[in-house]
Every structure is written in C-alpha cells, then in structure tokens.
Design a protein around this nucleic acid. Structure first.
Length: 333
DNA sequence: CTACCTTTGAAGGTC
DNA sequence: GACCTTCAAAGGTAG
C-alpha cells in the first residue's frame, strides 16, 4: 500500500543514492540474518516497545503478568532523554493489529478518561495508551516523574499521568539552575516554560521496530553504540517480509492517529530548532576531516579503492568499530 | 553539557 | 510532484 511507504518512496530512493549506504551495505550479512528469520510470529507479546510508558507495569498477555523475556534485558530506569523509567517495559500486543479500535483488556471508561481533554473525541480511538486497571497507584512518586512541576501544564491527563510523548522541557536543568541560584527565576519566565512541555513526534514504523529489537541486537553482537546498532537494525528492517513490516506500519499509523487526536493543534514543526545542529557545517568540511573514510582506510592499510566504509561522514570511532567488527567476524568463521 | 553518529519514515517547507 | 530538511530513539564518543 502506498501509505505504508512500500518501495521506500522518495526518501528511500534518495537513501540508495546516498554514499552512506555503501558503508551500511558492507556490514556482515549474517548479522542481519541472525535471529530475525526465526522470529516468533508472536513477537509483540514480549515486545519492549513503549510508546506510552506508564501504562502497563506487567504484560497482561503473559502468564502471571510476568515481564517479557526481552524486557528483563533492558534497564528499568532510564533517567536520560526525558523518557519515563518504565518505558522499556511496555509491551505491544498482537491485539493492536487484529483489533481495530480499542484495547480489549481495558475497561472502556478508562480509555475514555485518558482523553478527557481532547476537544474532538471520536469513538474510534485505538487503545494504545491504556491505563492499567490498578491505575497509577502502583508507581511510587519517589520516581520523581509524576510530580514534576513541568508536568502540570495542559498536557497532563486528568489521571495525573502525562502522555509519554510529552517531555518536560529540560526540567533537570531548570531545577539545577534553581538550586544554584538559591532564588527563583522571574515568575513569568518560569511559568511560560512550565506550560510548554515538548510533545514528541509519534514514532514511525522503523522507530517502533528499533525500539523493540535494539536490546536483542545488543545482546547478540555485544555492541552498544547506537550508530552501529542502528545500521544492523536498518538492514534487518529491509530483510523483514512485507507482512512483518506491515505490523509496524499499522502500529505507527495508529500511533499517528492517536497522537493527532490527543494533540490536534500539534505540528512536527513545533519541535524544529530545539536541537542545534552542526551537521551542515561538518558536511561541507568533510574533506578536511581527520576522520574521513580516506584517512580511515589509510590508517588501517586498506585499499583506497575499497569502499568498505564508503565516502560517508562517519567519525573515526565508528569506522574503527566497523573495521574491528568485520575483522572479528572474519576470524570467527 | 550537548551535538554527533546511524537508521527509516513522517511531515513540513520550498520551488 | 520532486526534493530537501528536521525530528523521532538510542548510547557511546567527542568537543
């Protein structure tokens, strides 16, 4: 289907032409083959995906509510990136694919309550942000998450639970600033910032896939660098059948749908410029980069005509990683 | 402390 | 419509 982006679309076509692809394509094939081909069709039952964290403390689809096999490999607490600590523990289930509208294991009234503030509530809201029957009471306030002052803006659910797409705007920094100065900032500025939490973009299909499979790839290859892991995940993504990918496209479609309903006025543009990017400058200066592929090849005595890493913009430690990675693999066989 | 690396996809913008 | 740019996640690395 065109709306799934089959065939890659314009962006994918451009990617193929992108020199970086050369580097990617040189990753060992058997890394991509490992695991995914034998993937349990019911993989989502143990998924570590967390679109919306606070929701399930245990997997209702597993016996005794036990955590998925995957989830115990990831840290329970993720203090960085403004992500809820329980994020990795939130599973998706196949029901999201087979049932069109709301989550079957949740009372309908709960699903409705979480969207009280929606201006235009429809009856076809997928149950992607369900609340556990036990509510938030099981989550201790000592986590410092539910009571964050920045969460008190319009994005706060009536349950007291913020939507996971909402990230407090550098709340840590603000608190540190507060402590250092031992006096509050001018009230208007603080209020203004407190009322503007960041609403993150909904995850696309590949992002959902990465979130689910990252821990598995890390466990398999012992790499931890996300840049390298993502290359592997990218190749695995392409190795998936359309059927398998369709699950994630459908999941992502529902994500976007609910995101739109939760934040009708939100635009991806709202988050533009919140990260300062230096990429543009680096690209222009790639020739003088001491970590250029050419110099990497020379460093490792590789043929300059061999495009194992390609004319990409990778920095040296990533080139080194890829080189050592290939080296180890070739020795192992 | 924060941008960068890397991946794909979605969305916004420009022409 | 084609094309470009930015941002979603992640964690090690570098400035």
């Amino acid at each position: 289907p065109p709306d799934h982006g089959w065939g890659g679309g314009g962006a994918a076509i451009r990617r193929v032409q992108d020199p970086q692809r050369v580097y990617q394509e040189k990753l060992p094939d058997h890394m991509e083959d490992a695991g995914m081909k034998h993937q349990d069709p019911g993989m989502y039952k143990g998924s570590a995906y967390s679109g919306y964290p606070f929701l399930m403390l245990s997997d209702p689809y597993l016996p005794n509510g036990s955590m998925s096999p995957l989830s115990n490999k990831v840290p329970v607490v993720q203090p960085s990136h403004g992500v809820h600590p329980l994020t990795p523990l939130i599973p998706y289930s196949n029901d999201h694919f087979s049932h069109g509208s709301h989550s079957p294991h949740l009372p309908a009234d709960i699903s409705q309550k979480q969207a009280v503030h929606r201006p235009s509530q429809t009856s076809d809201i997928p149950g992607f942000y369900p609340l556990p029957p036990a509510g938030v009471g099981q989550i201790t306030p000592s986590m410092g998450w539910f009571t964050h002052p920045l969460m008190l803006g319009s994005s706060m659910h009536t349950t007291g639970i913020p939507h996971p797409a909402i990230v407090p705007h550098s709340g840590k920094q603000e608190m540190e600033h507060y402590d250092r100065n031992m006096k509050p900032q001018p009230e208007p500025k603080r209020e203004k910032e407190a009322k503007k939490p960041t609403i993150k973009k909904p995850l696309n299909a590949f992002m959902l896939y990465m979130k689910e499979m990252r821990a598995k790839v890390i466990a398999e290859c012992t790499l931890k660098e996300s840049a390298a892991i993502n290359q592997i995940l990218g190749r695995r993504w392409h190795a998936l059948s359309r059927e398998e990918q369709a699950k994630y496209y459908e999941l992502a479609r529902k994500e976007r749908q609910l995101h739109m309903q939760l934040y009708p006025g939100w635009s991806a543009r709202d988050n533009y410029g919140k990260k300062k990017r230096r990429t543009r400058e680096k690209q222009q200066d790639s020739n003088s980069d001491p970590a250029s592929p050419k110099k990497c090849r020379a460093r490792f005595g590789l043929n300059q005509q061999t495009d194992w890493c390609g004319p990409c913009r990778c920095v040296s430690h990533l080139h080194l990683h890829a080189f050592l990675f290939n080296f180890c693999l070739s020795n192992a066989t």
